[in-house]
Every structure is written in C-alpha cells, then in structure tokens.
Design a protein around this nucleic acid. Structure first.
Lengths: 212, 212
DNA sequence: TAGATTGTTAATCGATTAACAATC
DNA sequence: TAGATTGTTAATCGATTAACAATC
C-alpha cells in the first residue's frame, strides 16, 4: 500500500475513479471490483487494479472493494479530507465562475476570497468577499493560505505569481495561458485550455482528411 | 518533418511554445533557437529541439528558427489557421465565462452559440446568442458544427453528449466532472479540474509533512 | 472445490535523455 | 576555421500491459 512515491500518471487517474464511485447508486451491491470499474470507465482492467492497489488494501479476491472504504481511501490519499484554503486572484469572468462553483468542496478545496486590482463588487452572490490587491499579503499571512489560483490576463500572471510566493503560497493553480517561473519548492499546475484545444483540433483535422 | 504520426506528448507541448513565441518582443532578433526557448520555459534543450523538428524544417544551425516562420509552422500544424466552429451547451457561470473569453480565437476556436434548457438571456454582452436546447439539432446541421463544449452539471453531461453526437459532432470538450461514453470515432477531451487539484493537493500534503 | 478476483513479477512499449555527426 | 546550433542514432527511463501465483 501507498508508502513509496506514487507515479504522477496514477495520481491523475484517481480523481476519475473517485468521481465514478460517487455516482454509483447506493441501492446496489456495496462492493465494486477493479474489473467493474475498468469496464465502466473504458479502461484496462489491470491498470485500474494496480492503481487501486496503490492507495488501498481493502481489496478482497472474488469480492472486490467495499465501495465506501475505497472512496475513503482515495480521498484520504489525495488529501481531500483535510480541506485546503485558497485565494483567487483576478475576479474577471473566469475568476467569478470558479469562485461560484460549489463543486470544489468535493475535492477539499475552499476558496476563501478573491482579489482584484479594481473590484467591481465587495462580495459575490455566494457570499465570497472580493478584496483589493493591497490586502493580499495580510490576508494570506493571517489565514495561513497555501494555495493561490491565478485567473488574471497572461501579461499580469508572473507578477501576481511572484506576489503570491512572497505571501507564503506553496502551490499555484494557473489559469493564465502563460509559463510561470517559480522556485523549486513551489508547484505550478497549469490548467491549460490550449493543450486540450490542440488535441481536439488535431482530431478534427484528421477527421476531415478522412472524409476526402 | 511531420509526416508520421505525432506523439500525444509532443502535441501537448506545442501550445506552450506557441504562447511563448507570441510574447517575445518584436524589436529583438527575428531568430530564436531551441536552446533559448528551452531556457525560457525551463525545459530540456534536446526535448524542445526534437519537438520543433517534428513540426518545422526551418531550423538552421548556428542561427535557429525564424520566429515568424516557426509560429506559422506550429499554428498550421495544430490547425489553428482554419478556425473551428463550436457550440457550447450549458450557459451557467462557467459556460458564460467561456463564451465571453475572447482568447480562444488565438487558438482557432470560434464558439458560435450557446444552448441551455432554460436560457435567462437571449444574447450575451459579447453578442453571442443563447438558444433553447430544442434548436440544437437544426443549428448544428445548418452550420456544420463539428465541436461541442459541455458545461452542464455532471448528471446531464452524458445526455447532452449523446445529443451532440446525434447532431453530427466529432469532438467533445468536456468540462463536466464525469466520464463520457462515446463511439470510437468521437474524441472526448476532458478539461479535468479534479486532476489538477489532485496534483496540487498531494504537493501541499508533502510540503506540510516536511515542515514537521 | 471451482472460479473470480486480487496482487506481483516479468515483458513490452513509448517517451525522454544522452551522445554524436552534420551544417552554416 | 571555430563554434554554435541543428538533426539523428543509441541508451535510459518510466509506464503500461501481459502472465502468473495467491486467496477467498
């Protein structure tokens, strides 16, 4: 079970299992096997089994995993049980959309507040405050915030990122379509729309060629 | 140069190069080398060089690539020069944020219209129409739309996806946190927020352990 | 027991990195 | 020519898949 370093590839698949496990109707069997999971998600049996073995030891031959236990194990492994507080910088359209998305709580993320160079409102419909940038440093220190979400235009992203690090942030979720330069102990995760679009675009090109 | 199948991993890095190349100030040298690019993006020299060689043959020893030509080559390769029309389903917060994001045009994407079970407005600030779902099929056929963007809640995503395929869509960009079942010739690209969050969450957990 | 499922060990595959020859 | 950069060929690394033994 998960004592050694987990491969990045496995880590990325875990949220998918979790999401599916949560959608299974409660009235069926309380057990689920790696085989069933694999079929439901269109993946390889062996891969799923290996992934699960890495985060849980609740698997029993012939039976599978107790659904509830498996969910708990994955969530615990991913750290979804102890909520992470975050600040969001850039209260534009995308920023406000993220701020209003309640689904993040399922992933253990809690956006405390948003910051903007010129806030248009003081508080969102959902009751999240939007502060001016000048208050960022004090707020982060006061609330011991470790994660920052960047939703500003690309040209301001590096500046904002530097400020966040200055405020003690250790992980950055970057929605701006640009590369961020950071010290080694800081993790930047790019929510790269352009990457997805590239894959889709290539697929459509290939499709169109086939047509001819 | 790019005749054979390109690895998915390379494809995913190309948008990054492109974004950076576009930010370079015009007043400097018109040339850029793989070495420079690698340093700027914090990547390996050899990897960048190999990637570039796959999409362009404009590289010249000692000099590098002509910036403009390289941009053109990557864009052409990714199909960013011939714009792809798309429809977006689910005009909630996230949907409207995407609808209002003008940056997609840089990637050759043009969202023609949004659809929603109960549209609150008929047209957005940016002039994009929001239609009721009943008009989806006619609209897609009329405009020969090939890409669909799904921003509905998870429980409706599969249903919407089925409708889109019925309408002739070949590529689906899925923002709903759920797995979609599709025929083999349809490509689903998941814009998976949960995946990114998992990676960040793990990093913070590790950081906190180190502290103790 | 028989069969389904688990976890493990070995083989394959793909991607990255390293070493090198070619070119301006 | 000398040096920087290119593209290519070979070696390493990591992840996936396949084969198998263990278990309920």
């Amino acid at each position: 079970m998960g004592k050694t370093e987990i491969p990045r590839s496995v880590l990325k698949r875990l949220p998918g299992y979790l999401a599916y496990l949560k959608t299974i109707p409660q009235d069926g069997s309380p057990y689920i096997s790696a085989t069933m999971l694999a079929h439901a998600l269109g993946m390889g049996e062996v891969q799923v089994r290996k992934d699960l073995a890495m985060v849980s030891d609740g698997g029993r031959p012939k039976i599978g995993y107790l659904r509830k236990v498996l969910i708990d194990d994955i969530e615990q492994f991913l750290g979804y049980d102890n909520t992470t507080d975050a600040v969001l910088i850039g209260a534009g359209k995308l920023g406000q959309a993220l701020l209003g998305y309640s689904g993040f709580e399922d992933y253990g993320l809690n956006i405390l507040a948003a910051f903007d160079v010129s806030p248009t409102v003081e508080i969102t419909e959902e009751g999240k405050p939007i502060y001016p940038m000048s208050y960022l440093a004090d707020f982060c220190r006061l609330n011991k915030v470790l994660m920052g979400i960047i939703t500003v235009p690309a040209q301001f992203a590096q500046g904002v990122c530097d400020q966040l690090i200055e405020c003690g942030i250790k992980a950055v979720w970057n929605f701006a379509p640009t590369h961020l330069e950071v010290p080694v102990n800081i993790l930047v995760q790019n929510q790269n729309m352009a990457t997805s679009l590239a894959v889709l675009s290539m697929h459509l090109q290939a499709q169109m060629k086939d047509k001819k």
